[in-house]
């Protein structure tokens, strides 16, 4: 590789990196609130898709390990997490919208959690939607293991860090 090719290659890498990494720069808010070094993976039940926030958010109740119910707090209320992702139009073009994720939808998602421990995170990697509420994952599994699941994005669910 001569010097010219090497420099061109570096510029190309830099350009691609700029495009890829520029997303947060274009966003409505800083993503510094999230711990990008941590990953958590959930299977949950959609409470609400809110398309009107900074970025599309899904509020969901976290399912238990047995996948036969949701975690509840001391009042018996579902434990609700929020996962934030891209803008509403962008996400709709990927198949995530109010209409495709109605209340009660079971899905799996990985996220970078908030640094302060509050129950919210920034989506990481693909999501998987279970085909219906009666076709839930087995113990400890996620929707990507269920036949007939719908994948949003490519690849596999990231490995959780904790």
């Amino acid at each position: 590789m001569n010097r010219h090719t090497h420099v061109t290659g570096l510029l190309g890498v830099a350009l691609v990196a700029t495009i890829v990494l520029a997303v947060p720069v274009k966003a409505h808010h800083s993503f510094a609130m999230y711990d990008m070094g941590a990953t958590r993976v959930f299977t949950g039940v959609v409470d609400r898709v809110d398309p009107a926030v900074n970025h599309l958010g899904i509020f969901f109740a976290v399912m238990n390990e047995a996948r036969d119910g949701v975690l509840r707090n001391e009042k018996g209320e579902p434990v609700i997490w929020t996962v934030e992702m891209g803008g509403s139009a962008q996400m709709a073009r990927q198949g995530v919208s109010v209409n495709t994720f109605p209340r009660g939808t079971v899905f799996s998602v990985a996220l970078h959690p908030l640094r302060n421990g509050e129950p919210a995170g920034s989506r990481e990697g693909p999501m998987f939607k279970c085909p219906d509420r009666n076709s839930r994952p087995a113990l400890g599994k996620h929707c990507d293991s269920v036949e007939g699941h719908v994948a949003i994005g490519s690849g596999t669910l990231p490995t959780p860090t904790k």
Partner: peptide, 14 residues
């Protein structure tokens, strides 16, 4: 092709 006719993305608009 959606739940309701639309021009843009599948996002309800105010």
């Amino acid at each position: 092709d959606g739940v309701v006719p639309r021009l843009g993305a599948d996002v309800p608009r105010w």
